[in-house]
Write a protein that binds this DNA or RNA. Structure first.
Lengths: 178, 178
DNA sequence: ATGTGCATGTAACTGGTTACATGATTCG
DNA sequence: CGAATCATGTAACCAGTTACATGCACAT
């Protein structure tokens, strides 16, 4: 399984009931960070969640506009979301997938969030190591494009590590250890 | 059209003839940066490129192993690659898509590369601006997950801008302006 | 008049993945 | 003996997009 829309949407609904349209609007402007679902995937998804009993719907007839269908998560939905969220961070997780997981941070008990950040930290570090080795292996006789791509990846993983570090500090310092 | 495997593979073959397997190996360890094609997409793709006359194949019968099929790009292939590469950078280009484009830098006449980096710079800057606004709009009453995601995005776009800036410098300083 | 926002949805398509099959060879 | 590497490929499946349809209200 990858980072499905499915659980992401479920996570959003866990924070507050929303309509399909609300979800799209909420995610607007975040297209760079996460894959905003198109209506063609979102509405069928909501329906199937409904059929599975993971969400309920309340139809609010618009007075002079189309009726809004507000979806709320059910206990069953929360349960399956929890199960999802408890899995370890995907080893090959893309940036977007990770951001989507971050978004779901509210569903996590505190220490679990820290845990996930640490996992990501380890993965990025590993990845960075791999890049360094590739660069070392290729040496100077590397095509321009390849060099650019590798250095770019290096710069971004560095930045990500810095951010993770500082965020972990922020999360940990306020709480006394133990 | 998005950043198809199609043109990426074509770009790799433009740099040197390779077999399908070679391509997979070459891309190994870069899975974080680009979407490495699975055999299920790669081999059919190579075949269709062949049928379209964009590549030619030379079968090297392995002495005691499966024969290797070395694909080389044809003039027609180069032409269609060029046409692809001359298009502007996708406005909503994901990180991976951009890295793939970087990889194809060899196919670009020098100034065009600079041009692409500049375009990316502008896009990232715009994106960053959007994030700042979202943060400002939401104010303090923002869910934890949302805050994390936004700050993460901010940190990464900053890093990307820094890298782009320094890379542009590197590319430009050696050449006298004009 | 023309378009944009609200709000839902469907059908056809695409660009992939997963899992498998083949078959020899070398490594531990 | 079992596993991994080399090297090709196929078939079934899947998540998602694109483009469209509907229809009213409000702004330009």
């Amino acid at each position: 399984m990858k980072m499905n829309l499915r659980y992401f949407v479920l996570g959003l609904l866990a924070q507050q009931p929303m309509s399909g349209y609300d979800i799209q609007r909420f995610l607007k402007g975040l297209a760079w960070l996460i894959n905003r679902p198109s209506s063609g995937s979102l509405y069928p998804l909501l329906r199937s969640l409904l059929e599975e009993g993971q969400v309920t719907v309340e139809v609010i007839p618009g007075l002079d506009r189309p009726p809004r269908k507000i979806y709320s998560i059910t206990p069953a939905g929360r349960e399956s979301l929890q199960a999802w969220v408890d899995r370890p961070v995907e080893a090959d997780g893309s940036l977007k997938a990770f951001v989507m997981q971050l978004f779901l941070a509210e569903c996590l008990p505190g220490p679990r969030l820290v845990d996930q950040l640490r996992q990501r930290q380890a993965q990025v570090a590993t990845h960075r190591e791999g890049l360094l080795q590739t660069i070392a292996a290729a040496g100077a006789q590397m095509a321009l494009g390849q060099r650019l791509a590798l250095e770019y990846g290096l710069a971004l993983s560095d930045a990500e590590l810095v951010w993770l570090e500082s965020e972990l500090d922020r999360l940990l310092i306020p709480l006394p250890p133990g």
